[in-house]
Simulated scan of single mutants.
Amino acid sequence: MSFFARFFVILFALIFSFIAAGIALAIGVMAPELFANSSDPIEKFVFFTAAFFATSFAGASAFVPAVILVAIAETFDLRSIFYYAIGGGLIAAIAWYSSDISLQLENTTDISPVGYGLQLVTAAGIIGGFVYWLLAGRKAGAWKNPYAAT
């Protein structure tokens, strides 16, 4: 596989890993309220639509650290699932600690406050890392040897 083709595989995998992390985060935030209070389907649709578009903001904040981890993995042929899962969790935890917006969002919604935010964000990062490994991480560094079986 050429470097040019590998670049597009990496970009595709990063986009889908950010979407998977965003969906996991939306489900984690909404799970306690999903079946408890409201049965309004429009409210649920609006929430998941907003969560889907909010994934782009999560992707924007995690893009540079993720590209750095991917560059390290491609350079040193790191293909371990643990590298990507732990890397995704660390990126999410660093993003959580660097942007504390819980006070600003405290009175803006009827959804009960999330008391386990760090665990939720880290789990979403691990899921994102796992999805990246499934799509691109298993063949990290394959572009360096054009005669290797893909």
Rank of each mutant, 00 (worst) to 15 (best):
M1D: 12
M1L: 14
F3W: 13
F4P: 04
F4W: 13
A5I: 10
R6T: 03
F7G: 06
F8P: 01
F8M: 03
F8W: 07
V9W: 11
I10L: 03
L11V: 10
F12C: 05
F12M: 08
L14H: 01
L14N: 01
S17P: 04
I19Q: 13
A20Q: 12
A26G: 14
A26R: 06
A26K: 06
I27Q: 08
I27H: 07
I27V: 10
G28P: 01
A31H: 12
E33N: 12
F35T: 13
N37E: 15
S38P: 03
S38Y: 08
S38E: 06
S38A: 10
S38T: 07
S39K: 15
D40P: 06
D40W: 10
K44F: 15
F45N: 12
V46P: 09
V46M: 15
F47Y: 13
F48A: 04
A50K: 09
A50W: 11
A51G: 13
A51L: 14
A51Y: 09
A54S: 03
A54K: 00
T55E: 07
T55P: 05
G59Q: 00
S61I: 15
A62M: 07
F63S: 08
F63V: 12
A66R: 01
V67P: 01
L69P: 00
A71H: 03
I72Q: 04
A73H: 04
E74L: 07
L78S: 02
R79T: 02
S80I: 01
I81G: 07
F82D: 08
Y83C: 05
Y83I: 04
Y83S: 02
Y84D: 01
A85M: 11
G88W: 03
G88Q: 06
G88K: 06
A92R: 00
A92G: 06
W96E: 12
Y97K: 11
Y97N: 11
S98G: 12
S98D: 09
S99P: 06
D100H: 08
I101Q: 13
L103C: 11
L103Y: 14
Q104A: 14
L105C: 02
L105W: 04
L105Q: 01
N107C: 09
N107K: 08
T108K: 12
T109A: 09
D110A: 14
D110S: 14
I111Y: 15
I111P: 07
G115I: 12
G115C: 10
G115A: 11
G117W: 03
L118A: 10
T122Q: 09
T122M: 15
A123F: 13
A123I: 05
A123Q: 04
G125Q: 00
G125M: 02
G125V: 02
I126N: 00
I126C: 05
G128L: 04
G128R: 03
G128Y: 00
G129H: 02
G129E: 00
G129N: 02
G129F: 05
F130V: 11
W133V: 08
L134V: 04
L134H: 00
L135A: 02
L135D: 01
K139M: 14
A140H: 03
A140C: 08
G141A: 13
A142H: 11
W143T: 01
K144W: 13
K144E: 12
N145S: 09
A148E: 12
A149Y: 14
A149E: 15
A149T: 14
